[in-house]
Write a protein that binds this DNA or RNA. Structure first.
Length: 470
RNA sequence: GGCGGCGUAGCCAAGUGGUAAGGCACGGGCCUGCAAAGCCCUGAUCCCCGGUUCAAAUCCGGGCGCCGCCUCCA
């Protein structure tokens, strides 16, 4: 049995996975900033952390998964100088930041549920952990890592020698280049706000008292504070989108390692690559491109088909998203589901010897840095095998599904809901059938064409004709 | 300017030294009154050039193209 290996961004290599505590794994995943609806790219990140969790559970680990909800402090733009995303969204909608956060948090949870993600053990909100964040800032201040300028309390990144380590940054090269617009008073371009002061005379929707006056926490602080609260001052795996590595995660490391006095703070950094929209096809509603999971659902695509789509590519590879790609995934998923559902009807006991090689190949693919596409190839081998007994195929599908999360073999999602009935259409169908029996092909085909024009597909079968909407 | 990644059949994609997984589409076949649905079969020498090697999609060098990050971003 080969060992589990994961690619770690910090060490830039794939390494055997060894948890800090045998049998247990702590995972912290950077969650959504709840100021807007999440798009399919966000869903990919969510699916990635879920696949990781499901695989580790299948390996027998006791997994604690934490996903944070960012509901304050995430600025719109400009290093540490822009508007708070939550404040901006609230203003636009004429609601409180809390209402905005609650609304989009709920949508995010619905998306996750729709693609069958296991709920996290903890789902903390930044605004519920202001105390912990202030405590951490106090510790950092006592350690001499912070300095205060007009608009906030900043972390002096020159005090942390390993600052550039996680993302392999070349700080000098960066500052010589494109980087412009340094906040006045910052000692180093890479310094970041730990606590922001409320502007004089400006009433924010979200602000709190602190030893440094009224204000709000910097974006990065919440992840350091909340991860330690739920997973301890060191933990096993931290996940997020690849874009977060350079700034957000780099700053988290600085705060945590300096504040907690640990190294390495996180054993494995795992980052998922982006979904690409292909060439000049920017993702935007005005162009009619699909953008959110809801858009997909509105087009009649099963949200689980998006999960299937996700599983077709490796998480560290950019994946091209297009109408054609998601449509082909939906078709493949439907076929697979149908095969699995039919296998559920098989009775009897399988053979461990027969199943062994397939289970091993499946597991090894995932143990190799979560190579889902390779695992899916094994699934299809089983689905289309004519050398395996049906009982064994059934058992294998049942064994694979808890890791894949595709709800294979779940009849209700597969075929049982497929056929519809409606008095008018059923009547037309009967009319066509009568014409067929009379060999009046012209009439029969006319009825079929009429229904097709309504988007209705007739499927003839030994039990008689049935229909469904395309 | 710096950092990172990618370029494999029409599309989505595995594969990092021994001679190209899987899915979708197309085409062909079975079925059908004809179709549809379903089932079966079928396709690539891996962006270009040069090098290393008995052997390279896989290693090295040089190009070309594309993408991400460095400012919020999954």
């Amino acid at each position: 049995m080969s060992q589990i290996e994961f690619y770690d961004t910090r060490s830039r290599e794939q390494r055997p996975f060894e948890p800090l505590t045998p049998g247990k794994v702590g995972i912290y995943s950077c969650g959504p900033t709840v100021y807007a609806e999440q798009h399919v790219g966000n869903v990919r990140s969510r699916l990635f952390s879920d696949l990781l969790k499901r695989f580790l559970i299948s390996e027998g680990f006791d997994v604690t998964h934490v996903i944070n909800i960012t509901d304050v402090g995430h600025l719109v733009s400009d290093a540490d100088d822009g508007e708070d995303k939550m404040e901006a969204a609230a203003k636009r909608a004429g609601q409180t930041a809390g209402e905005i956060a609650a609304h989009y948090t709920e949508l995010w949870r619905q998306d996750a549920a729709a693609v069958n993600c296991l709920p996290p053990e903890h789902n903390p909100k930044a605004t519920d952990h202001i105390e912990e964040q202030i405590e951490l800032a106090k510790t950092l201040e006592a350690g001499g890592y912070l300095y205060s300028i007009s608009d906030g309390l900043y972390f002096d990144t020159s005090r942390f020698p390993r600052y550039a380590e996680l993302a392999g940054l070349d700080l000098e090269g960066q500052s010589e280049g494109m980087r412009i617009g340094i906040t006045a008073g910052k000692r180093n371009p890479s310094d970041f706000a730990v606590w922001k002061f409320a502007e004089e005379g400006v009433q924010r929707l979200q602000e709190w008292d602190s030893p440094w006056g009224v204000g709000f926490p910097g974006w990065h602080l919440e992840c350091s504070a909340m991860s330690s609260r739920y997973l301890g001052e060191r933990f096993d795996i931290h996940t997020g989108g690849i874009d977060l590595a350079t700034v957000h995660h780099t700053n988290e490391v600085a705060q945590s390692e300096c504040g907690f006095g640990v190294h390495p703070w996180v054993s494995y950094w795992m980052h998922n690559e982006f979904l690409s929209m292909g060439g000049d096809e920017k993702m935007s509603k005005s162009k009619g491109n699909v953008k959110t999971l809801t858009d997909l659902i509105d087009r009649g695509i099963d949200p689980l088909a998006f999960r299937y789509f996700f599983l077709q590519a490796h998480y560290r590879q950019q994946q091209a998203f297009s109408d054609e790609a998601i449509a082909s995934a939906a078709k493949g998923f439907k076929r697979l589901q149908k095969i699995a559902a039919e296998l559920e009807a098989v009775e009897g006991d399988g053979s461990a010897d027969e199943q062994g090689p397939y289970r091993a190949r499946f597991r090894e693919a995932l143990a190799d840095d979560l190579n889902a596409p390779r695992a899916m190839a094994v699934v299809w081998d089983v689905a289309r095998s004519d050398s395996l007994a049906d009982v064994d195929r059934r058992d294998l599908m049942r064994a694979f599904d808890p890791v894949l999360g595709l709800q294979l073999g779940c009849a209700s999602t597969a075929v049982s809901d497929e056929w519809e009935s409606d008095p008018r259409i059923d009547g037309l169908l009967a009319e066509r059938n009568n014409a067929r029996e009379a060999k009046d092909w012209a009439t029969a085909d006319r009825v079929r064409d009429e229904l097709a024009a309504e988007g209705i597909e007739i499927v003839d079968s030994p039990e008689g004709p049935r229909w469904r909407r395309k």
